[in-house]
């Protein structure tokens, strides 16, 4: 108990010290408040109660929202593909010879770690520089970054799956891929689907800001409205995004509930 308590107090001190240090990374001398922005801020906040709901703008907003959804959905399909293939390899569930397994696991894990380490918008920018401005670059960026995360999570779940049913299958003469398909996968599938749905929600948020690297979608409309100082339009777009995220959150909750009961 005393050991536990002392390690916690060490942690508390470390974290408080880190936070204190982080305050020094802000340049306080130059003044952090943007005084000229205050009237604009008040105007912006006042516009919250009167979002622009004209048919013309709503049409534009919904089209932008659809683009964002399309990016996220297409990106998630790429991510699931990468995650499933590399995740399976990284779990070491398929290889039967020890040397082959070691190579597979280390190689797949390193690849996944690298894919995941770089943020999707950084990937997007790199892809755009290499390939040009097209939705496909955004889709690839999402697919690569999220494929890395999904793959690592998939591998972890597959490796942690209970082994008793597996051994039964193997004893009955199942090949590794059969044992994988009928023994391991069904056990972890609900968790994997649930995590993928959570990631889809994140993908929507990520796709909403693809405009910062020059791609279209909700963020592009939002930046345009902000530049034209049309705050009512900004609020319409913000409300739409929040509604979308809440709807997807609700949907994934429903799916999760139906899978576990």
């Amino acid at each position: 108990m005393t050991g536990l308590r002392s390690s916690r107090s060490i942690l508390t001190i470390l974290l408080l010290a880190a936070f204190g240090w982080s305050l020094t990374s802000v340049d306080w001398r130059e003044g952090v408040l943007n005084v000229q922005g205050t009237p604009a801020l008040l105007e912006f906040l006042a516009a919250a109660v009167r979002p622009v709901l004209t048919p013309a703008f709503l049409g534009r907003a919904v089209a932008a929202l659809w683009q964002t959804v399309a990016y996220a959905v297409a990106g998630m399909t790429v991510a699931l593909l990468i995650g499933a293939v590399l995740g399976t390899l990284a779990s070491g569930a398929l290889a039967h010879r020890r040397v082959a397994r070691f190579g597979e696991v280390v190689g797949a894990r390193a690849t996944l770690g690298l894919l995941r380490a770089i943020h999707e918008l950084v990937w997007a920018w790199l892809f755009i520089a290499a390939l040009g401005l097209s939705p496909i670059t955004g889709v690839l960026a999402l697919g690569v970054a999220y494929g890395g995360i999904l793959g690592l999570i998939f591998a972890q779940h597959l490796a942690d799956a209970p082994t008793a049913p597996l051994r039964a299958l193997q004893a009955a003469g199942a090949r590794p891929w059969q044992a994988f398909l009928y023994g391991r996968l069904p056990l972890v599938l609900p968790d994997l689907v649930s995590y993928a749905l959570y990631r889809f929600e994140c993908a929507l948020r990520a796709a909403a800001v693809f405009s910062f690297v020059g791609l279209g979608g909700l963020g592009a409309e939002l930046q345009l409205s902000l530049r034209e100082l049309n705050y009512g339009e900004v609020w319409t777009l913000l409300f739409l995004l929040i509604a979308l995220i809440v709807a997807v959150d609700w949907w994934s909750g429903e799916v999760r509930r139906r899978m576990t009961t």
Binding site: L33, N34, T38, G219, I245
Partner: peptide, 17 residues
């Protein structure tokens, strides 16, 4: 939670340098 970091950053620039 619903708004991504970059949108928050964009909105916060009203108030901060």
């Amino acid at each position: 939670r619903a708004l991504p970091e970059l949108l928050w950053a964009l909105l916060l620039l009203f108030l901060f340098t």
